[in-house]
């Protein structure tokens, strides 16, 4: 594949890798802040198939950070905006837009046939449903979450259950973002790191395992944690 649109991907991505990316299939669960940036970046990278899943319509409060939201498309489905956006940016990418909320019942169908799943959700309980579905489907999961000036990303291989370590026994709590707000640059930073994890995963470049990266845009700090193999937490996620 020698398309000019991918010229500036070289030599970070070889022509062989670029061709491989066109064969890859990813699913983004959540098409709000993180999901919109992820679609944009994975589509521009040249991932061949992107499924986007979100039940929601755009609201005015989304405009501060959600790339796909705009004044004209308020009240319109987020996944429809995703499809239209990628048609304009990179029509070589097939976008499968599914306007539904992921549940324990439909999660396996939503992940079917994909090489990677992106966690762009906005709550903790659904993240555990997703982790379980990814484990069952035996596909890697790229986790990301934001609150205020802070964000976190973590690649999760099937069976590692790293969300259990990240969220402890707080599965029923709401995240801090309800107090701190959610800022556009934090969302963009976090999604960008998730896109980097995605590229490495899809191209089998090897990613650091059991690492959680925290970013603090206020302190201009990145902190990388090693997550322990064993854990004393009683929280084992939802089936």
């Amino acid at each position: 594949m020698e398309l000019e649109r991918y010229l500036r991907n070289q030599n970070a991505i070889s022509p062989q890798e670029q061709a491989l990316l066109a064969q890859k299939r990813v699913v983004i669960i959540g098409c709000g802040g993180l999901g919109g940036y992820l679609l944009e970046q994975l589509g521009r990278l040249g991932v061949g198939f992107i499924r986007v899943v979100d039940p929601d319509l755009f609201e005015e409060s989304n405009l501060n950070r959600q790339l796909l939201s705009s004044t004209p498309n308020l009240g319109k489905p987020k996944v429809l905006a995703a499809k239209h956006r990628m048609l304009a940016v990179n029509p070589l990418v097939e976008v499968d837009a599914i306007q539904v909320r992921m549940t324990a019942e439909n999660a396996s169908d939503l992940l079917a046939g994909c090489d990677l799943v992106l966690d762009a959700l906005d709550n903790i309980p659904d993240r555990f449903i997703l982790q379980q579905a990814a484990k069952t489907a035996q596909i890697p999961l790229a986790h990301g979450a934001v609150a205020g000036w802070q964000g976190q990303v973590c690649p999760i291989l099937p069976g590692q259950d790293l969300l259990n370590l990240i969220y402890g026994d707080c599965q029923e709590y709401s995240g801090e973002e309800h107090e701190t707000g959610t800022l556009a640059f934090t969302v963009g930073l976090t999604a960008s790191l998730m896109a980097a994890i995605s590229l490495q995963t899809l191209l089998n470049k090897g990613i650091p395992e059991r690492k959680l990266l925290l970013l603090d845009a206020q302190k201009l700090e990145f902190t990388k944690f090693s997550l322990p193999v064993s854990s004393s937490t009683q929280w084992v996620g939802r089936d």
Binding site: G30, I124, A147, Q152, E176, T182, V187
Partner: peptide, 27 residues
Amino acid sequence: YVAEEEYDRHAINDGDDVMVLHLMAGG
């Protein structure tokens, strides 16, 4: 993992490695 109800009595010893994560879930 140290549960919140243990914070007042869970001792931290010299040399311990402590990880503190904010609970964030926004997307």
